[in-house]
Amino acid sequence: MTGTGRSGSARSGNARSGGALSTAAGRRCAALVLGVLLVFALVPVYWMVSSAFKTNAEIAALAPTLYPHHPTLEQFRAVLAGGALLRSLGYSAVIAGLTTIVVVVLGSCAAFAVSHLTFRGSKGFLIGILFTQLLPQSAVLVPVYLLWNSLGLTGTGAGLGLVYLALYLPVAVWMLTGFFRGIPLDLTEAGRIDGASNVRILWSIVLPIARPALAATAIYTALTCWSEFLLALVLLTSNTTTVTVQLAGLIGRHDTNLGQLMAAATIATVPPVVAFFALQRYFVAGLTIGTVKG
């Protein structure tokens, strides 16, 4: 009981009251759980990173080594040679970054409209945009390519970004709507009574409260763009392509170049993790509805 009292008073800090486990015992329990989960999550990641530092012969060994016995940078050197990988990283970063910004902005507007302006047919709109996700990608590939080709958008990063925008904006609307609904209507109504425009209400009332949701949506969008493969494959050519397509090129017809694949993938995993760290604080410091009200 003392613990809950403490959590109640610690609301402005890191240990906000939402964590019902904020007792010392609770935290030990949480640490244990997280430890197990970290092992589960990171063993494959460790495998990737450690393989990247192994020689081809060591990777092929039938008694796999748990760490590189003869650490080498040869795989990294090989994948970095020529600069194609780094170029594709930059390309992916630009496409993912710009798409994410546009998706979050447009998604917030639409989610705000659906959740707080509740226009006629808003439910139909919500269900309708969800149906954009139903067709499997193999079925979308040909028609989207045909459409984009007739619009002259194939072979360009902008064209790819537009497909991503089209595909992921509906998801962003869904995610954001879910969170925006948690924001009481009273709050936005109050703004309206004060004479604020819808844009103003969205900007200064809704968005600040919804920062964790915006961060989650942004992370989702950026990561999905970053790891998308099939559309990038068909819409771009190998000279200017995204990092996932570049990586797939290391899998040959008869042979997977495992060492180089692992090295390239290790490099390709760093930017999104760093980007996530950058957005991380919004999870921690994001205002909660409770504090706003109080």
Binding site: L34, L38, A41, M48, T244, L247, P272, F277
Partner: peptide
């Protein structure tokens, strides 16, 4: 949290 997110971040082919 960031570390737990890495599985989601790793490229599909890998």
């Amino acid at each position: 949290r960031a570390l737990l997110l890495t599985p989601w971040v790793m490229p599909g082919v890998v």
